[in-house]
């Protein structure tokens, strides 16, 4: 036997002993589990980062978001427009140094397609307090189908460094409870 500092001489390509083989086999089996879980979760799981992805220019995305705000605005909070889009619609959230626009008012149990992009540098979408994180990259539209499963107020913290005002960049999502959802959708044409 020799240490790792010494040059082995002769043929060192020898069969492994039982314990080594056992451990390599178990470790490999575990690695297969690690792999299998990812496709499995795409098939059975409820949280996947796939989304609908497109390239988009900053101007086009900003314009689309503005149209979205103009159509569904219901108020304003801290100088940021509040929008209440219809159930199941495409909704837009734009990151810019250093704010998230608009404030979204959503309904529990309803699916939306949330489009994320940035008009300047990279930003990070972090939904507080449930800890959902996505990278927001300028030039790309990340359309995620999201279904809020609980009502309440959520904040969007920027978690990608975006310059000196990074810590100012907090947005907001309000999710109305399911009972109200029934009332609203019931009353809608």
């Amino acid at each position: 036997m020799h240490t790792g500092l010494e040059s082995p001489t002769g043929v060192w390509w020898k069969p492994a002993h039982r314990t080594e083989k056992l451990w390599v086999a178990i470790a490999f089996g575990w690695c297969m589990v690690l792999f299998a879980m990812m496709p499995l979760w795409h098939w059975k799981g409820g949280q996947n980062p796939t989304g609908i992805r497109h390239r988009v220019t900053a101007e086009a995305f900003a314009q689309r978001t503005q149209e979205f705000i103009d159509t569904y605005q219901v108020g304003e909070e801290a100088g940021i427009p509040v929008v209440e889009p219809p159930a199941g619609s495409d909704i837009y959230l734009v990151g810019a140094m250093w704010s998230w626009r608009p404030v979204l008012r959503l309904r529990q149990g309803v699916q939306y397609t949330l489009h994320l992009s940035s008009v300047d540098v990279n930003h990070g979408f972090n939904l507080y307090p449930i800890n959902v994180n996505f990278q927001v990259v300028p030039g790309y539209d990340y359309g995620l189908r999201v279904t809020p499963t609980a009502a309440g107020e959520f904040q969007i913290v920027c978690n990608e460094f975006c310059g000196i005002g990074h810590h100012l960049m907090v947005g907001k999502v309000i999710v109305l409870p399911a009972e109200q959802t029934a009332a609203v959708t019931g009353g809608a044409p």
């Binding site: 909070e77 801290a78 100088g79 940021i80 704010s99 990070g124 972090n126 939904l127 507080y128 307090p129 449930i130 800890n131 994180n133 904040q155 913290v157 920027c158 978690n159 990608e160 460094f161 990074h166 810590h167 100012l168 960049m169 907090v170 947005g171 907001k172």
Partner: peptide, 24 residues
């Protein structure tokens, strides 16, 4: 980090932010 606290962040008390974020 499991509470969602961001990395690379100067002020997680968000004193100057437009909306309040209060970690556990």
């Amino acid at each position: 980090g499991t509470f969602g606290v961001p990395r690379r962040h100067w002020d997680i008390s968000f004193q100057q932010a437009p909306f309040e974020v209060q970690y556990a």
